[in-house]
Amino acid sequence: MTIYLIDDDSLGNYLTEALLRLENFASQICTYESAEDALAALLRAPTPPRVIFLDLNMPVMSGWDFLDALAPHRHRLLGQCQIYILTSSLALSDMEKARTYDLVSGLIHKPIDREEIRAIQAELTLENR
């Protein structure tokens, strides 16, 4: 299973990756510090990643911009790729906005913890059946 971590904060990426590895979340974790790079990789890949952890607040291309850029590829991604917004923002407005994207499976406040990782794993197992 391949997953993407997209966050301009390298420390954030390091932390999330370490936590995921401790839970044996994925065989391959690709980290991107720029949403543009992640988008390019995603469009190049023959199959999309199973899960994307997406930061919102990034320069040049924000998390929202990334989601908007995925809109044309929605059909290819729905059911194949779960996108979780991973943000330090506590703003309600971000939660509301996240609900308007059907590609977004959930919004997680940083730092992600063990329970949250396990919940996602459980969800993935259910879907794979």
């Binding site: 904060d9 932390l15 330090s88 506590l90």
Partner: peptide
Amino acid sequence: LRAPLANATGF
């Protein structure tokens, strides 16, 4: 402010 604090908590 929360971004580095969240990281610190995580680490």
